[in-house]
Protein backbone atom coordinates (compact mmCIF):
# COMPACT_ATOMS: atom_id res chain seq x y z
CA UNK A 1 0.00 0.00 0.00
CA UNK A 2 2.61 2.53 1.13
CA UNK A 3 4.82 1.68 -1.83
CA UNK A 4 1.92 2.12 -4.27
CA UNK A 5 1.17 5.57 -2.83
CA UNK A 6 4.88 6.43 -2.95
CA UNK A 7 4.94 5.46 -6.64
CA UNK A 8 1.77 7.47 -7.26
CA UNK A 9 3.22 10.48 -5.45
CA UNK A 10 6.43 10.25 -7.45
CA UNK A 11 4.44 10.12 -10.70
CA UNK A 12 2.50 13.20 -9.60
CA UNK A 13 5.67 15.07 -8.61
CA UNK A 14 7.64 14.07 -11.68
CA UNK A 15 5.05 14.09 -14.49
CA UNK A 16 5.10 17.82 -15.23
CA UNK A 17 8.85 18.02 -14.70
CA UNK A 18 9.64 15.03 -16.88
CA UNK A 19 7.36 16.35 -19.64
CA UNK A 20 9.15 19.71 -19.52
CA UNK A 21 12.46 17.91 -19.88
CA UNK A 22 11.23 15.91 -22.88
CA UNK A 23 9.56 18.81 -24.68
CA UNK A 24 12.65 20.97 -24.16
CA UNK A 25 13.93 19.17 -27.27
CA UNK A 26 10.80 19.75 -29.33
CA UNK A 27 11.14 21.94 -32.41
CA UNK A 28 7.55 23.22 -32.08
CA UNK A 29 6.95 26.85 -31.11
CA UNK A 30 4.14 25.74 -28.82
CA UNK A 31 5.34 24.20 -25.56
CA UNK A 32 4.27 20.60 -24.93
CA UNK A 33 3.73 19.94 -28.63
CA UNK A 34 6.14 17.57 -30.35
CA UNK A 35 7.62 19.02 -33.53
CA UNK A 36 10.69 16.91 -34.04
CA UNK A 37 14.01 16.92 -32.19
CA UNK A 38 15.84 20.21 -31.89
CA UNK A 39 18.35 22.06 -29.72
CA UNK A 40 16.87 25.42 -30.76
CA UNK A 41 15.42 26.36 -27.35
CA UNK A 42 18.78 25.87 -25.68
CA UNK A 43 20.26 28.11 -28.36
CA UNK A 44 17.47 30.60 -27.77
CA UNK A 45 18.28 30.56 -24.07
CA UNK A 46 21.95 31.19 -24.81
CA UNK A 47 20.89 34.16 -26.91
CA UNK A 48 18.54 35.75 -24.37
CA UNK A 49 20.45 38.52 -22.59
CA UNK A 50 17.45 39.56 -20.50
CA UNK A 51 17.09 36.12 -18.99
CA UNK A 52 20.84 35.75 -18.50
CA UNK A 53 21.03 39.09 -16.75
CA UNK A 54 18.16 38.09 -14.45
CA UNK A 55 19.79 34.71 -13.79
CA UNK A 56 23.12 36.31 -12.89
CA UNK A 57 21.40 38.79 -10.61
CA UNK A 58 19.47 35.98 -8.93
CA UNK A 59 22.59 33.87 -8.43
CA UNK A 60 24.41 36.83 -6.89
CA UNK A 61 21.52 37.65 -4.57
CA UNK A 62 21.11 33.99 -3.63
CA UNK A 63 24.81 33.59 -2.80
CA UNK A 64 24.86 36.79 -0.74
CA UNK A 65 21.60 36.06 1.02
CA UNK A 66 22.67 32.47 1.80
CA UNK A 67 25.98 33.65 3.26
CA UNK A 68 24.27 36.25 5.42
CA UNK A 69 21.63 33.68 6.41
CA UNK A 70 24.33 31.23 7.55
CA UNK A 71 25.97 33.90 9.72
CA UNK A 72 22.70 35.07 11.27
CA UNK A 73 20.95 31.71 11.34
CA UNK A 74 24.01 29.97 12.77
CA UNK A 75 24.04 32.48 15.61
CA UNK A 76 20.26 32.08 16.13
CA UNK A 77 20.48 28.27 16.22
CA UNK A 78 23.49 28.35 18.55
CA UNK A 79 21.78 30.73 20.98
CA UNK A 80 18.60 28.61 20.95
CA UNK A 81 20.50 25.37 21.53
CA UNK A 82 23.17 26.52 23.95
CA UNK A 83 21.98 29.50 25.96
CA UNK A 84 19.47 27.61 28.09
CA UNK A 85 16.85 29.78 29.69
CA UNK A 86 17.40 33.51 29.35
CA UNK A 87 15.04 36.43 29.68
CA UNK A 88 12.96 36.77 26.53
CA UNK A 89 13.83 33.31 25.28
CA UNK A 90 10.20 32.54 24.41
CA UNK A 91 9.95 35.69 22.29
CA UNK A 92 13.38 35.02 20.78
CA UNK A 93 12.40 31.49 19.77
CA UNK A 94 9.03 32.57 18.41
CA UNK A 95 10.61 35.34 16.28
CA UNK A 96 13.38 33.03 15.03
CA UNK A 97 10.82 30.50 13.78
CA UNK A 98 8.17 32.96 12.54
CA UNK A 99 9.54 33.44 8.98
CA UNK A 100 9.18 29.68 8.40
CA UNK A 101 5.40 29.87 8.42
CA UNK A 102 4.43 33.50 7.83
CA UNK A 103 2.62 33.79 4.48
CA UNK A 104 4.99 35.27 1.90
CA UNK A 105 2.74 38.20 1.06
CA UNK A 106 2.73 39.23 4.72
CA UNK A 107 6.52 38.90 5.05
CA UNK A 108 7.05 40.71 1.76
CA UNK A 109 4.72 43.58 2.55
CA UNK A 110 6.01 44.01 6.09
CA UNK A 111 9.67 44.01 5.00
CA UNK A 112 8.94 46.53 2.27
CA UNK A 113 7.14 48.80 4.74
CA UNK A 114 10.12 48.46 7.11
CA UNK A 115 12.58 49.43 4.38
CA UNK A 116 10.44 52.43 3.43
CA UNK A 117 10.19 53.49 7.06
CA UNK A 118 13.94 53.01 7.59
CA UNK A 119 14.74 55.08 4.51
CA UNK A 120 12.47 57.87 5.72
CA UNK A 121 14.06 57.83 9.17
CA UNK A 122 17.72 57.26 8.34
CA UNK A 123 18.17 57.57 4.58
CA UNK A 124 19.12 53.88 4.42
CA UNK A 125 18.48 51.70 2.43
CA UNK A 126 18.39 54.04 -0.56
CA UNK A 127 15.44 52.89 -2.62
CA UNK A 128 14.52 49.27 -3.24
CA UNK A 129 16.72 46.94 -5.20
CA UNK A 130 19.36 44.25 -4.87
CA UNK A 131 20.22 45.06 -1.26
CA UNK A 132 16.64 45.00 0.00
CA UNK A 133 15.87 41.71 -1.81
CA UNK A 134 19.06 40.24 -0.39
CA UNK A 135 18.10 41.25 3.17
CA UNK A 136 14.58 39.88 2.73
CA UNK A 137 15.91 36.55 1.46
CA UNK A 138 18.53 36.42 4.22
CA UNK A 139 15.83 36.96 6.83
CA UNK A 140 13.89 33.98 5.46
CA UNK A 141 16.98 31.82 4.95
CA UNK A 142 18.29 32.54 8.47
CA UNK A 143 15.16 30.98 9.96
CA UNK A 144 15.82 27.75 8.04
CA UNK A 145 19.53 27.73 8.93
CA UNK A 146 18.61 28.26 12.59
CA UNK A 147 16.38 25.18 12.57
CA UNK A 148 19.07 23.01 10.98
CA UNK A 149 21.83 24.25 13.31
CA UNK A 150 19.69 24.02 16.42
CA UNK A 151 18.72 20.44 15.58
CA UNK A 152 22.35 19.48 14.96
CA UNK A 153 23.55 21.06 18.22
CA UNK A 154 20.72 19.43 20.17
CA UNK A 155 21.66 16.09 18.63
CA UNK A 156 25.34 16.53 19.53
CA UNK A 157 24.60 17.38 23.15
CA UNK A 158 26.88 19.55 25.24
CA UNK A 159 29.34 16.89 26.28
CA UNK A 160 32.06 17.63 23.73
CA UNK A 161 31.96 21.32 24.60
CA UNK A 162 32.06 20.43 28.29
CA UNK A 163 35.10 18.24 27.62
CA UNK A 164 36.85 21.10 25.82
CA UNK A 165 36.10 23.48 28.70
CA UNK A 166 37.43 20.88 31.11
CA UNK A 167 40.64 20.74 29.06
CA UNK A 168 41.08 24.47 29.55
CA UNK A 169 39.56 25.95 26.38
CA UNK A 170 37.98 29.40 26.72
CA UNK A 171 34.42 29.81 25.36
CA UNK A 172 35.60 31.48 22.14
CA UNK A 173 38.17 28.72 21.62
CA UNK A 174 35.51 26.05 22.16
CA UNK A 175 33.33 27.71 19.54
CA UNK A 176 36.22 27.84 17.05
CA UNK A 177 37.85 24.45 17.63
CA UNK A 178 34.90 22.22 18.57
CA UNK A 179 31.46 23.68 17.86
CA UNK A 180 32.11 25.19 14.42
CA UNK A 181 33.88 22.15 12.91
CA UNK A 182 31.12 19.88 14.19
CA UNK A 183 28.26 21.95 12.78
CA UNK A 184 30.07 22.77 9.52
CA UNK A 185 28.04 20.20 7.50
CA UNK A 186 24.83 21.72 8.85
CA UNK A 187 26.00 25.21 7.99
CA UNK A 188 26.78 24.04 4.45
CA UNK A 189 23.38 22.35 4.14
CA UNK A 190 21.75 25.51 5.53
CA UNK A 191 23.62 27.60 2.97
CA UNK A 192 22.31 25.40 0.17
CA UNK A 193 18.78 25.60 1.53
CA UNK A 194 18.88 29.40 1.82
CA UNK A 195 20.41 29.61 -1.68
CA UNK A 196 17.56 27.52 -3.14
CA UNK A 197 14.90 29.50 -1.26
CA UNK A 198 16.28 32.73 -2.64
CA UNK A 199 16.46 31.35 -6.19
CA UNK A 200 12.83 30.23 -5.94
CA UNK A 201 11.27 33.38 -4.55
CA UNK A 202 8.79 35.56 -6.43
CA UNK A 203 6.79 37.27 -3.72
CA UNK A 204 9.51 38.74 -1.46
CA UNK A 205 11.49 39.90 -4.50
CA UNK A 206 8.37 41.52 -5.99
CA UNK A 207 7.64 43.47 -2.82
CA UNK A 208 11.17 44.45 -1.85
CA UNK A 209 12.71 44.76 -5.33
CA UNK A 210 12.79 47.84 -7.45
CA UNK A 211 12.46 48.47 -11.19
CA UNK A 212 16.20 47.94 -11.68
CA UNK A 213 16.31 44.59 -9.91
CA UNK A 214 14.28 41.90 -11.67
CA UNK A 215 15.27 38.46 -10.47
CA UNK A 216 14.88 35.36 -12.62
CA UNK A 217 11.76 34.02 -10.82
CA UNK A 218 10.08 37.43 -11.06
CA UNK A 219 10.86 37.56 -14.78
CA UNK A 220 9.63 34.00 -15.30
CA UNK A 221 6.48 34.74 -13.30
CA UNK A 222 5.57 37.63 -15.57
CA UNK A 223 6.20 35.39 -18.59
CA UNK A 224 4.15 32.50 -17.18
CA UNK A 225 1.14 34.78 -16.79
CA UNK A 226 1.18 34.86 -20.60
CA UNK A 227 1.57 31.08 -20.68
CA UNK A 228 4.51 28.68 -20.70
CA UNK A 229 7.25 28.83 -23.30
CA UNK A 230 9.50 26.14 -24.81
CA UNK A 231 12.46 28.16 -23.60
CA UNK A 232 11.22 27.65 -20.06
CA UNK A 233 11.28 23.89 -20.68
CA UNK A 234 14.92 24.10 -21.75
CA UNK A 235 15.75 26.15 -18.65
CA UNK A 236 13.93 23.64 -16.44
CA UNK A 237 15.99 20.77 -17.85
CA UNK A 238 19.25 22.64 -17.26
CA UNK A 239 18.28 23.44 -13.66
CA UNK A 240 17.17 19.86 -13.11
CA UNK A 241 20.51 18.48 -14.31
CA UNK A 242 22.51 20.87 -12.15
CA UNK A 243 20.42 20.01 -9.09
CA UNK A 244 20.66 16.28 -9.76
CA UNK A 245 24.44 16.56 -10.05
CA UNK A 246 24.83 18.61 -6.86
CA UNK A 247 22.42 16.34 -5.00
CA UNK A 248 24.18 13.16 -6.12
CA UNK A 249 27.60 14.55 -5.16
CA UNK A 250 26.26 15.61 -1.75
CA UNK A 251 24.75 12.17 -1.13
CA UNK A 252 27.92 10.36 -2.25
CA UNK A 253 30.20 12.58 -0.13
CA UNK A 254 28.08 11.89 2.96
CA UNK A 255 29.30 8.29 3.08
Amino acid sequence: MTRAVLALGLVFLWAPVALMAVFAFSDARQPFVWGGFSWRWFAALADNPRMQEAALLSLGIAAGAATLAVLAGGALGWVLARHGAFRGRMVFGALAAAPLVLPEVVTGLSLLLLFVALERATGWPEGRGVLTILLAHASLGAAYVAVVVQARLAGLGRMLEDAAADLGAAPATILRTITLPLIAPSLLAGWGLAFMLSLDDVVLASFTGGPGATTLPVLLFSQMRMGPTPEANALALILLLIAALVGAVALLLRR
Partner: peptide, 9 residues
Protein backbone atom coordinates in the same frame (compact mmCIF):
# COMPACT_ATOMS: atom_id res chain seq x y z
CA UNK B 1 33.51 11.25 30.56
CA UNK B 2 31.43 8.10 30.66
CA UNK B 3 31.08 7.98 26.88
CA UNK B 4 34.59 9.47 26.59
CA UNK B 5 33.54 12.65 24.72
CA UNK B 6 36.40 12.27 22.24
CA UNK B 7 36.32 14.96 19.56
CA UNK B 8 35.18 13.04 16.46
CA UNK B 9 36.68 15.54 14.01
Amino acid sequence: FQSYALFPH
